[in-house]
Amino acid sequence: MFNYTIRRLLFTVPTLLLISFIIFLLLDLAPNDPTGNLPMTITPEVREKIRISLGLGEPIHIRYLLWLQQFFVNEPLNLIEEWWGIQIGDAENRLRVQSWATRSPVVDLVVERMPQTLWVVGMSYVVGILIALPIGIISAYKHYSWFDQIGTFVSMVGFSIPTFLTGTVLIVLFSVLIDSSSPFWLPSIYDTTHRVTDWSSFVVQVKQMAMPVMVLALFNAAQLSRFMRASMLDNLSQDYVRTARAKGMKERVVLLVHVLRNSLIPVVTVIALGVPQVFGGAIITEQIFKVNGLGQLLIIGVQGADIPLVQTLTFIFAVLIVLFNLIADLIYGILDPRIRYD
């Protein structure tokens, strides 16, 4: 398994380099201009100077190599320096990947966005899983019962109704129709600067997370519960379940120890594969509730033609996807004794 992991990790290097180059090329070929969204009062001559100051005067291969150096050498060095408080070489003149719109290091922006994204999107993922697993298990066990039918209906609804609709409906219900003095009122705008220090600030945090988390959790749960149900059904009809019953095991043990454990193998893999999406944020939901996480950062970068930001963010997502694919494979290997990597 160790050798396998190392081999897979080594293989990701050329993969990721290729991905980064393709992203760079695509972004460069896309007709876009970082000065396109500036007010008309800024003259074309000034725009041209801005473009040159952003480094757009250089040919593409130079810009790509520069980005490679910034991302793979300068950024890690900076990270090491910050962690250990040391200085390596000429830190002053070492240029990190800079966003064009904010003129600040992209990685710092990403780090700044991480908490709200992980809190809201991550929590919605966790809540989604917590909702989905019991629903999937019961639906499969009580196959075709009214519970299963309702579960199927709800997950179809959750899956097919877009989050911008559920989000807006929730805002109208909980922020507009309910008066803001009521304890059931929920804020429609997420305050990213809010800090949890005591019980009452914790309640505020829970309230402001409630709507975006529920909107996303519903969406996630819809998908996952179907998956859980299918996997459970698959295993429920297996002979080893009959064996367990023949052994005289309690139904609870049959279900939770035998069936569930085996059914969870593919589900856990799917959950692991979905984790990069958490880091990718939820563009639409973040926009609706103004959570301003990584998804919103990306969309603003795209709209403003902030190419270093989009390039770096997209590449980080690519790294995460490749990484979690590997993790999913390894988890599969750990959970399923039939799989051996060597």
Binding site: Y240, T243, A246, P337
Partner: peptide, 18 residues
């Protein structure tokens, strides 16, 4: 249950793989 048992046709499927 302890008094009566079964041996299945498919020895692979009847044993819990985990």
């Amino acid at each position: 249950r302890p008094r009566m048992q079964m041996i299945f046709q498919d020895p692979q499927a009847c044993l819990n793989p985990r």
